[in-house]
């Protein structure tokens, strides 16, 4: 029996649970390198989490239970989604036909509660962040599904993430490269927008009016903020590993090699994000729409090519 079938999934999930905050460290180190600074330690996100978990909390008198439910459901939904996402060729803990819809909608559930928690404070700033978040997420959702459909076509697999990613290396040939390339570009845009990175949102900005994700969680503190931070790290990990599994399909069959290679590529994705953040400013909010629609068009073209390829 192939060990990657039995232990691979849980091992990959555990790797994500432990390694996700490291990705934030890699991004920040890269940005520090380009800025000529030493930057925060690689493990800073872990320190932050521990510090926040040890703190008390202050709540706005306007808020209700929804405000506390936001971080909890947000983290829980991302955690459950992670159980269905394969790490490159290593199948996820659970896989079934249609798991990609479950992953997309679980992330949607987490976002919905985060947005409600933001509206719960009654602050205009958080209302602004909430509405930008839902707007960009709405435009991102069809792109992800169309890109995955194109990928499933070239992989010739059932519509489930694990077999699709597992099939990519065997199906890979010069013919599929354009499809995979377009899908990868679309996914990079999605990764940046879904995880609130530059050029869509600046995680380091200090002006409430211009923020998206950060302003939604402005009133959270203590363990709640720790949950949010960890949830965001897991979501970034989820997208980074998905992208890594597509662009560098290492499928040796050896569990350690496959896991290690995809993880390394995922960290390299972190470096790329850091380079993007160092080399460009954020877009005006109007242009973000254009960027996301552009990604949707790329995904549609990928699908078009995939139709031609399989016939």
């Amino acid at each position: 029996m192939n060990p990657s079938v039995t232990f691979g999934g849980p091992l990959a999930t555990a790797l994500g649970l432990v390694g996700a905050p490291l990705l934030l460290g890699v991004i920040n180190k890269t940005k520090a390198f380009f800025a000529g600074r030493r930057g925060p330690p690689l493990l800073q996100a872990y320190f932050d989490l521990v510090k926040l978990l040890g703190k008390g909390a202050v709540y706005s008198r306007t808020t209700t239970w929804v405000f506390c439910a936001g971080p909890i459901v947000g983290l829980a939904a991302t955690l459950v989604a992670l159980l269905f996402v394969p790490l490159g060729g290593v199948a996820a803990t659970f896989a079934f036909q249609g798991d990609l819809f479950l992953v997309v909608y679980l992330l949607g559930l987490g976002r919905f509660l985060t947005v409600l928690a933001a509206l719960d404070t009654g602050s205009s700033f958080e209302g602004m962040g909430a509405n930008r978040e839902v707007k960009f997420a709405t435009l991102a959702e069809p792109t992800l599904l169309l890109a995955l459909l194109a990928l499933i076509r070239v992989a010739g697999s059932p519509w489930s993430l694990s077999p699709t990613l597992g099939n990519i290396s065997t199906a890979s040939s010069l013919g599929t490269a354009p499809v995979i390339g377009l899908v990868a570009v679309a996914l990079v845009v999605l990764l940046l927008s879904e995880n609130s990175r530059i050029p869509v949102d600046d995680p380091n900005t200090h002006l409430e009016l211009t923020m998206i994700h950060e302003v939604m969680v402005l009133d959270h503190g203590g363990p709640d903020l720790a949950f949010i931070l960890y949830g965001a790290a897991l979501k970034l990990w989820l997208f980074a590993t998905l992208l890594a599994g597509i662009v560098v399909p290492v499928r040796t069959g050896n569990l350690a090699v496959d896991l290690g290679a995809t993880t390394l590529v995922a960290l390299a994705v972190g470096v790329v994000v850091g380079i993007v953040e160092s080399s460009m400013a954020r877009l005006r909010l109007i242009h973000v729409t254009h960027l996301l629609v552009g990604a949707l068009v790329l995904a549609a073209v990928a699908l078009l090519l995939a139709v031609g390829w399989s016939r």
Partner: peptide
């Protein structure tokens, strides 16, 4: 969700919880 709620409750049990206006 239940586990996280419990964790949050355990963490905050003996700590100061403030109430204030929204930022």
């Amino acid at each position: 969700v239940l586990v996280l709620t419990l964790t949050r409750w355990l963490l905050l049990r003996r700590r100061p919880i403030g109430a204030t206006g929204t930022w």
